[in-house]
């Protein structure tokens, strides 16, 4: 009796000891990331919120408590509201177009008679290019308003259309063309890869079974098998793309940035991040800037929640 009991306790202590050792190893391995995320993501939320309750102009310190005045100011700031409206319109446009084009290219590449790998590489390569460099190509080489711009050359040689000032015109809003195509070029390849991967996961037998059932055309197979089975990929692509679009900055800064004294164009196509950059970095209104940032974060949150509600959410088995 006594012997068994003591053996039991030794086992229990050994067990306890091992568990404690595992816990130490766990924290040793996870600790750096958790502490880092706490400090660089949660502290800015807390500290930034405190700053947003202060005037804090020209200083990042808590200077002159103003309550919610910064929130009131930014929410009644016409330019900020305009930028929110603009980014909503822009997202409503860019997200479906990106989705459709990347799905289209994925289907085309997967069904290519030859050169699958080559086409995939070509569509994927722009993903490596930065927004700054793409902005440079778009603004100076393709959509330069002068006749030497590639787009103007093309419309001249094909249809003898006079050069268009792509970035400088307000009506019709040609700058939309510039901003949408640059984002498409940079992003489509990435989402195409996701779709191709999703398509490769669909068991071949499903297509065979459908063919036995008389489904002949590729379109029928796509509509009844490929598209429904890509549901999870689709939701993921839409969600990521939307969150990205709401945080657009670099291509706007680099394509429209320098023209903003000239035409007031930027006030027409200015995303909220660029406006906050001007408020916080140029004017150094940190209190207003942080308030605006939190409102934007909140909006992105709400939009993603609404979107995942509409699409039924991720994770359901297909």
């Amino acid at each position: 009796m006594a012997i068994t009991a003591s053996a039991g306790t030794t086992a229990a202590t050994a067990n306890k000891k091992r568990r404690r050792k595992d816990a130490i190893i766990f924290w040793f391995m996870v600790g750096p990331v958790v502490l880092g995320l706490l400090f660089f993501i949660f502290t800015p939320i807390v500290w930034g919120f405190l700053v947003s309750l202060h005037k804090s102009r020209g200083t990042v310190n808590l200077e002159e408590y103003v309550g919610l005045a910064n929130y009131y100011n930014i929410l009644t700031d016409e330019d900020y509201l305009k930028s929110l409206l603009f980014i909503t319109q822009f997202s409503l446009f860019i997200v479906p177009v990106t989705y459709a084009l990347s799905l289209f290219l994925a289907v085309m590449v997967q069904n290519a008679a030859w050169g699958k790998g080559v086409f995939r590489t070509i569509f994927f390569m722009p993903t490596a290019i930065s927004y700054v460099i793409a902005a440079m190509i778009w603004r100076m080489a393709i959509f330069s308003g002068l006749p030497y711009g590639f787009a103007n050359w093309i419309i001249w040689v094909t249809a003898e259309i006079e050069p268009i000032a792509w970035i400088g015109t307000i009506r019709p809003p040609w700058h939309y063309m510039v901003l949408v195509t640059v984002r498409l070029w940079l992003q489509v390849g990435f989402y195409m890869i996701l779709f191709i991967a999703g398509m490769q996961d669909i068991p071949q037998e499903m297509y065979e079974a459908a063919r036995v059932d008389g489904a002949e055309s590729k379109w029928t197979l796509f509509r009844h098998i490929t598209f429904p089975l890509l549901r999870n990929t689709s939701i993921f692509v839409l969600l990521v793309n939307l969150v990205h679009a709401f945080q657009a900055f670099a291509e706007f800064y680099n394509i429209l940035g320098a023209t903003w004294t000239a035409g007031g164009l930027l006030s027409l196509a200015r995303p909220p991040l660029l406006y906050l950059y001007q408020v916080a970095m140029n004017q150094q209104f940190y209190g207003t800037g942080t308030a605006g940032a939190f409102i934007l974060v909140l909006i992105i949150f709400v939009v993603t929640v609404i979107q995942s509600r509409l699409t039924g959410g991720l994770g359901k088995e297909v």
Partner: peptide, 19 residues
Amino acid sequence: TFLVPLQAMFVPQFVLIAK
């Protein structure tokens, strides 16, 4: 933390880093 849109957080992050 993965759900926090990081780019949009650049002002609060800057304010802390500057501090």
